[in-house]
Design a protein around this nucleic acid. Structure first.
Lengths: 350, 350
DNA sequence: TGTTAGCACTCAATAAACGGGAGTGCTAAT
DNA sequence: ATTAGCACTCCCGTTTATTGAGTGCTAACA
C-alpha cells in the first residue's frame, strides 16, 4: 500500500496541527480542519492505514495520533514547502574582519534562537586549506618571545614561548626569515620530519626554540581540537513540555553545554549533500542519545577564503521545520555573502 | 534577645541537617540528632525564639523550620568551620602559557562543577595594569596588515586591518618603530588626543592606518567588553528540587548562558574584603533576581603579572558552604601559584 | 524557673474514587 | 466507498479521605 494523494494530505494536516498544538490530533479535528470534506469515520479509516504504514503513532489507545519519525521524515522530504523568510530584526551586520567575527557569530546565534524559539549552535569557522601564510617572531621579554602564526584565511594564533638563550633582534630577524622562507605555503602534511630536521640544523644553536615554534604551528593548524561553538537559547527547551521534564532537560542542558558531542553533528559532512546543503536529523537519526526526542537542523556556511563553519538548531521533534529551515537558510546566506570571496592571491612570500 | 550558646547550637543543627536533606527539619529530629539531650518540647520553644529572631522560617504551619537568609548568613559568618580540602582528581596542571590558558580554565570549571555539584563560572583573567608592551605590524596581503598588540601581562590580541594604500616592508618597519617608540609603556589614559595627533602627523601619508591601529589598541585594552566567562555544570541545578521547576530552571539557565549579568557579580570588587578574599552572596544579596533562591560563592585569583580573574559557584541556598568555600579556595590557590610572579621587569623598550 | 510529657490542631502530601471527555474501532446502513 | 451510530478505552482533572510529621499550648515536674 502506498501513500495516495488523500493519505498524504491527511498526514500533512496531522503533522501541521501537531506542530502547532503539541497535542495528539484526532479524526474529528481533521475532518473539520481540512478541506477534504470527509467525515471523521473516513478519516479514522485512513488514519488506521497511516498508522499501519508507520507514519503516525498513538501515544495510547483512545488518544489521537502523533507523527512518527518516519512521518516527520516524509513531511520534511516531500510535503514541506519552502519560503523565503526574513528574520525579524536581522540588521545588516557590517562586520570588521576576524577578531570581531566571533562576536558576530554569537549575535547570529542569539538572533536565530530568538526568532525560532529553539536552541541554536554556531561553530566558529574552520580553515579548510590550512596552509601557512606567515610566521612572525617578536621579542617580548628577556626570556620570552611571541610567536604569531597566520594561516591562509587569516586565522591568527599567538603563543608565547620561553627561551633559555637570550636572543637579540638580529637573531630573531634571521629566524624569522629562515622560518618564513622554508615554511610559507605549506600545510600540515608537508611539514615532514625530514624538513624539521633540516630546519633545526640550519637554526644551529637555536634549534631548541625552532622545535617549540613548530609545535606552536602544529597546534595552530590542528584547530580541530578547540573548535569553538557558540550556543544560545538553551532555555527554549523549557517551552516544550515534551522536553522539559527534569530528566530530559538535564541531559539536554549538559549536552548543549558540553558541545563536544555536538561537534560531530555539526561537522559531519557526508559527501552526498542535497542541493541546499541543509540537513535534518529527526529523533534518533542524530545518533545522540539525549536527543532522541529532538530534531536538529544543520547547515554549513562558508566565509570565503575556505573558511567553513556550521549552524545547528535543536528543538523538539515537532519543531516548525519550515520556519527553521528557512531561517537557517537566511542566516547561511547572510554569512556566505558577508565576505566577498577572492581567490586571486595564492600565497605571499615574506 | 541574643543568641546564646544553645540557640546557636540548635541553629547549627537545623542548618546542617537542612543542607543535607533539603527538607524542613522538626524539633524531634533535632532532639535526637544533637548531643544536647533536650526534649523536643524544649527545642520547640527555642525554635520559636529563633523564628522570632528571624534566623529560621516555617514554609507553612505544621512543617519543620528552614534557615532564612539571615540564618545562612549567621552560619557562614560565625558557625562554619573551614577545612583544607583536596579536590578529588586535581591533577597537577602543568600549563603552557597563554593561549592554552583558556583550556585550563575550562578544565578547572569542569573540575569544580563535578566536585561540588553546583554550577561553576570562571572568568578569563583581565589585565590590571593594561600597559602597552609592544605593537607589531606585519603585512598579510596586498591590502591587509596584521596588527598584533601585546599588553603587560602578555595579553595578545590580533586584528587584521585593511589598507587603502600599498605598504612595503620598509614603510611597515618604519611604522613599527614609530608606534613602539611612542606608545610602549603607556596605558589608556596616557594615549591622549594630543599624542594621537602628533603620531598621525609623523606618520604622514599613513595617518589613516595609524588611526585604525589606535582603534585596535583601544579595543584590545578595553577587554572589559568581551570578558570571557567559562561555565560548567549548569545541569547541576536539576539536582536540587527547589531550583528545578520549569520557571526557575529556565531563568537560571538563561542567566548562566548569558553570563553578561554575572560579570558584575564576579568582577564586583568592593574594597573592604575579608582576609580570605572569598565572598558569599546569599539569596537576594546577589542582587540578581533570578538567583533569589540561590547562593553564590566567589573568589578572585591572580595569575601573576597583574592578571586577575574570578571564580563563581552557583547553587541552592542550602549549598554546602564549607565544601564550596574550601574547594574554591583550593582552586584559587592552584591558580595563584600556577605562574610564578615576577615583578622584576618594569617594561621593556623596543 | 527551666524542662518535659501530653494533647489537640494544622496542613501538605499521597492515594483512592469518580466523572467527563476525547478518541477509537467496529458494524450496519446508505 | 462513505458515513452515522454506539460501545469501549483511557487520560486527566477534581474531589475526598487518610496519613503523618510537626507545631503550640498547657499542666506537671525537678
Amino acid at each position: 500500500m502506498e501513500l495516495n494523494e488523500r493519505k498524504s494530505k491527511i498526514l500533512q494536516v496531522i503533522i501541521q496541527t501537531y506542530l502547532e498544538t503539541g497535542e495528539p490530533v484526532g479524526s474529528r479535528t481533521i475532518s473539520k480542519m481540512s478541506d477534504l470534506n470527509l467525515s471523521s469515520a473516513t478519516i479514522r479509516n485512513e488514519m488506521s492505514d497511516l498508522e499501519e504504514l508507520g507514519y503516525i503513532v498513538q501515544p495510547h489507545t483512545s488518544a489521537g495520533r502523533i507523527p512518527s519519525d518516519k512521518g516527520y521524515r516524509f513531511y520534511v522530504d516531500n510535503i514541506m514547502k519552502e519560503k523565503e523568510r526574513e528574520i525579524s530584526d536581522m540588521r545588516n551586520f557590517v562586520v570588521e574582519h576576524t577578531e570581531r567575527m566571533e562576536q558576530v557569530l554569537k549575535e547570529m546565534a542569539k538572533l536565530l534562537a530568538a526568532n525560532t524559539n529553539y536552541a541554536t549552535l554556531i561553530s566558529a569557522p574552520q580553515s579548510h586549506g590550512n596552509r601557512l601564510k606567515f610566521i612572525q617572531l617578536s621579542p617580548v621579554d628577556d626570556d620570552q618571545i611571541l610567536c604569531t602564526v597566520v594561516l591562509e584565511g587569516n586565522i591568527v594564533k599567538n603563543k608565547i614561548l620561553a627561551t633559555d638563550q637570550l636572543l637579540d633582534q638580529e637573531e630573531i630577524l634571521k629566524l624569522n626569515i629562515l622560518l618564513n622562507t622554508t615554511l610559507n605555503g605549506l600545510d600540515t602534511e608537508q611539514i615532514t620530519l625530514n624538513l624539521i630536521a633540516r630546519l633545526k640544523e640550519q637554526a644551529g644553536i637555536h634549534s631548541g626554540i625552532v622545535g617549540d615554534i613548530l609545535d606552536a604551528i602544529a597546534e595552530t593548524i590542528n584547530t580541530d581540537e578547540d573548535l569553538e561553538v557558540y550556543m544560545s537559547g538553551a532555555k527554549n527547551i523549557f517551552r516544550y513540555p515534551e522536553l522539559s521534564d527534569t530528566q530530559r532537560a538535564s541531559g539536554l542542558i549538559s549536552l548543549l553545554e558540553d558541545k563536544s558531542e555536538l561537534k560531530n553533528l555539526l561537522v559531519d559532512k557526508s559527501a552526498d549533500i542535497d542541493d541546499s546543503d541543509i540537513k535534518v536529523y529527526i529523533g534518533r537519526e542524530s545518533q545522540v542519545e539525549e536527543m532522541e526526542d529532538c530534531s536538529v537542523v544543520t547547515a554549513t556556511y562558508e566565509l570565503g577564503d575556505g573558511l567553513r563553519g556550521a549552524i545547528g538548531i535543536v528543538g523538539p521533534k515537532r519543531m516548525d521545520y519550515e520556519k527553521v529551515m528557512d531561517s537557517i537558510k537566511t542566516v547561511k546566506k547572510q554569512l556566505d555573502t558577508m565576505y566577498p570571496k577572492k581567490k586571486k592571491e595564492e600565497d605571499i612570500g615574506d
